[in-house]
């Protein structure tokens, strides 16, 4: 599925997320958080750093309701630099019309996978007085993609051709209560989600249990991993980030790191998690979120002995 990816006619020859997962290859993805402002030099550096050591890069869409450089533009930059983008689309800032036109644009520029999210709520971010849209939500967004793949839009009109994407979604294995979350997972599958990334997981035994249920569905699933940089961060997430739970032993391990070595411990923990996921075949891939510490992703992969050219 090679397609012209931008006006300059650069072709994206990287395998798509669909091709990797359907071939049964362990999918390794990273994440690019666009910057706040027009200086995109550092972001481009991160793209160059990651593009050949991960299969694909998620691009967050005004993550945590904080205004940033657009995800769609970042997807194009990734393509121009020879990487494979996974476009995150949220429903917070755009109504159905705006999302549809963005998807048309993404499709014609070579974006092949779209991760469908409802999006964080406005008040958690940095534009607290902004009007939130939520004309659609994740399940409806997945259905929208299906509609557009049939050549139609949500207004009930026929477009001059269909689009084609590999739609993905997220699931939160640590949600409390879990049952309604699982119902929603099922709805996302039915609405057309072909693969899932999880919210950050740390409790591997719990994750293994969750996967037993998830494996009953005809979808692929990547474990979401967030790099710990300090014990304080772990405690903060436990307290403030819904659906994230860092077990005490990991907090202790982070706390007992020598001064200045917490990051090393975080890297060690993530490498260990990746190894276990692969050894026990717990998931179909990992999604590495090194929020602000993209520089160490090569080290994480090295310590995890995970080289995508050798998979």
């Amino acid at each position: 599925m090679t397609r012209v990816s931008n006006v300059l006619g650069i072709e994206n020859k990287k395998p798509s997320i669909e091709e990797i997962l359907e071939a049964g290859t362990f999918l390794v993805s990273g994440e690019i958080g666009p910057p706040k402002g027009p200086d995109i030099e550092e972001m481009i550096h991160h793209v160059d750093l990651l593009k050949d050591i991960v299969h694909a890069m998620n691009i967050t869409d005004n993550q945590s309701s904080v205004m940033r450089y657009p995800s769609l533009a970042t997807a194009l930059i990734i393509l121009e630099h020879g990487g494979e983008p996974n476009l995150q689309v949220t429903c917070r800032d755009r109504n159905r019309m705006a999302i549809e036109s963005d998807l048309l644009f993404a499709y014609t520029r070579g974006v092949r996978s779209v991760l469908c999210l409802t999006g964080d709520s406005v008040p958690v971010g940095d534009h607290k007085e902004s009007k939130s849209v939520f004309d659609l939500e994740s399940v409806q967004l997945l259905n929208l993609i299906r509609t557009m793949e049939e050549g139609n839009d949500l207004g009930g009109n026929e477009m001059n051709g269909p689009v084609k994407f590999y739609p993905g979604a997220i699931v939160t294995p640590e949600a409390d209560p879990l049952e309604p979350q699982l119902l929603k997972f099922e709805k996302k599958v039915e609405a057309g989600a072909r693969w899932f990334q999880t919210q950050a997981i740390y409790d591997m035994d719990h994750f293994a249990k969750f996967m037993k249920t998830a494996r009953e569905y005809p979808v692929k699933l990547q474990a979401g991993l967030v790099l710990l940089v300090s014990a304080g961060m772990a405690k903060y997430m436990n307290k403030n980030v819904p659906g994230v739970f860092v077990p005490d032993d990991l907090i202790d391990e982070m706390a007992s790191a020598e001064k200045g070595k917490a990051l090393d411990t975080g890297i060690k923990i993530m490498a260990r998690q990746i190894k276990r996921i692969r050894e026990e075949n717990l998931a179909d891939g990992v999604h590495i979120m090194a929020i602000g510490k993209e520089e160490v992703v090569p080290r994480i992969l090295e310590e995890a002995e995970l080289n995508i050219t050798k998979l």
Partner: peptide
Amino acid sequence: CHKGILNGPCGGTDNGKCEV
């Protein structure tokens, strides 16, 4: 539901409380 979601809870549910 703070976001007016029609198809089930978002990932922000925490202990039965809303993320906002």
